[in-house]
Nucleic acid binder design. Sequence first.
DNA 1: ATTGTGGCCTGCCCGC
DNA 2: TGCGGGCAGGCCACAA
Length: 263
Amino acid sequence: MPELPEVESYRRLAERTVGRRVGEVQLRDRRYLRGGTEPDELQQVLHGAQIAGARRIGKLLVLDLGDAGAGRRLGVRFGMTGRLQVDDQLGVDRLLHASDRLEPAWQRFAVRFTDGGLLAVHDPRLLGGVSLDPDEAALGPDAATVTPAALARALQGSTTALKARLLDQSRLAGVGNLLADEILWRASLAPARPAGSLSPAELRRLHRRLHQTLVELLERGGSHLGELVPHRTPGGRCPRDGGELRRATVGGRTTWWCPTHQR
DNA sequence: ATTGTGGCCTGCCCGC
DNA sequence: TGCGGGCAGGCCACAA
């Protein structure tokens, strides 16, 4: 599913649209609109606008608009099965838990550029969506660049499960379920630990592993390419010490961890 | 305010 | 072979 590494791939792909002008806007299903954006407004703002930039905050892709749409922004969320296409190129090859097929009906939103190119979002399950002027302030610091101090602030003073806090996009933006399991596994921290219970040494370890994991997976281009992920399955064993992994629901999400070395 | 839960949405996989 | 149920989880509305 698209987490920070996938969305960063999408952002890089979206950079190809910078400087191009929007012609036709296609919204196949108005359920794909989020944040109160109306089809008419979307059409009006996008038509004739130029793409001025492609940014990413956590899992949110933001296209800054220029010219006719100056000052406005287009936000794209990918949910867990969303894919970005620019011209004839796809952002990532494979998505875990998502079909690799590209049914025309799954193309939920697209803009045609006046040069004949295309930016399209394919999303079988409609869990993603597009909106005008998304609330960027509602997101915490981006997980790829968060400082140790900011990470500590995101966790401190809370008794909720550490993993739940890592998944809270308003505290830290970009970590999804697979990444959370991978990072906690690498940091040797139990997912159900109270978020505020980490010692300074554990906080440093978590920050280092978070950073390391993101650098590595950004390079590999997918959140499913971690070390733990292939073992998140019944009977799966810890690749570090061979112990049987445990499965439970933490923070409302399926969670796999190694009770032997994650404390 | 914070935290937890259920619903959305549908392709896919398993067991009968 | 077909079918039904369960599962996947990002995000949001809502409840406690």
